[in-house]
């Protein structure tokens, strides 16, 4: 039982990381019809920024993380202004390819600016742990879980209850109509990129203490976040979040109870089998194609 609880808490923690990244992907998908494969790379670059701020000024990791997220907001806005705004008329496949180009660009820029050696970023809460039902949970893990959930709840509140959230939902449902109704869709899309980059950065920094800050730190998260989006369905904002926690939980269970080396591979195979039977995801509705 204590092992199970332990696994549950670590699943919640890794699920939060995946969920934050997945939320970024879905926000961009819903507002600009584009699967953002560069979500992880955006997070990685800004995790480097936060780590540099932490190392050179010595402020607390939380402030450094917030500053990293601010730089992510700026980077997201730049990406939208410089690249994505010009890509309105490009086909969906080409839009995906643009994000591939963005990955390569960031992959080349990061070692140029920040050097090739991996850096370490500390935990937000450096020490302390408590036991619950025989499972030992660090305060940092609890902090990560709570921060992840809080941010998600705030975002959902924003989407459902505020005027700007309505603008985002209107853009998501039909961009042209939204524009005709006076919704500033350009600003909405720009905001989506900024928020997505910031969420990716937070995910990267939650992960950083365990795996150091390096160029390939987000590869795994990127794959899992995309899979979470497919699993939850691209039609709702909350689907991918549920998908992310499911992925985090399943992955931990598979690696612990079945095989530590093949757990990840089994997860991907299960995922492939799943999309054959439910191609629209857990909560996805079938979209009727109009010709």
């Amino acid at each position: 039982m204590s092992t199970f609880l332990q696994l549950l808490f670590s699943s919640l923690e890794s699920g939060s990381v995946y969920a934050l990244a997945a939320l970024g992907i879905i926000i961009i998908f819903r507002t600009s019809r584009m699967t953002n494969f560069a979500q992880g790379s955006l997070g990685m670059v800004n995790a480097f920024v936060a780590t540099f701020i932490y190392i050179y000024t010595g402020i607390t990791p939380i402030i450094a993380a917030l500053l990293g997220m601010v730089s992510a907001l700026i980077l997201g806005i730049i990406v939208d202004l410089v690249i994505m705004r010009r890509a309105k008329k490009v086909s969906p496949v080409s839009k995906q390819i643009i994000t591939f180009g963005l990955i390569m660009l960031l992959l080349g820029l990061a070692p140029m600016i920040f050097g090739t050696s991996p850096l370490s970023f500390p935990r937000f809460i450096i020490k302390g742990a408590f036991t619950i039902g025989g499972a030992s949970v660090t305060y940092n893990a609890l902090f990560n879980i709570i921060v992840g959930l809080t941010i998600m709840l705030l975002l959902f509140y924003f989407l459902q209850k505020t005027k700007w959230g309505l603008a985002v939902r209107a853009t998501a449902s039909n961009e042209v109509t939204a524009q005709l109704m006076g919704v500033p869709t350009k600003t909405v899309t720009m905001g989506a990129w900024a928020v997505a980059a910031a969420l990716g950065t937070l995910a990267a920094l939650m992960l950083a203490p365990a795996i150091t800050v390096n160029v390939s730190m987000m590869d795994n998260v990127q794959v899992n976040a995309l899979i979470a989006c497919v699993l939850g369905g691209f039609q709702t904002f909350y689907g991918p979040v549920i998908g992310a926690y499911v992925i985090g939980f399943t992955r931990n269970m598979l690696t612990y109870y079945i095989s530590s080396t093949w757990g990840g591979a089994i997860l991907y195979i299960l995922f492939l089998v799943f999309i054959v039977f439910r191609p629209n995801g857990i909560i996805g509705k079938k979209r009727i194609k109009k010709v």
Partner: peptide
């Protein structure tokens, strides 16, 4: 001699070609 120059070159080319020379 800069690391990652090849990646930047490829990445920028992908984006530029798709946007301006599809």
């Amino acid at each position: 001699s800069i690391d990652g120059l090849a990646y930047i070159f490829t990445g920028v080319l992908i984006i530029v070609v798709i946007l301006f020379y599809p």
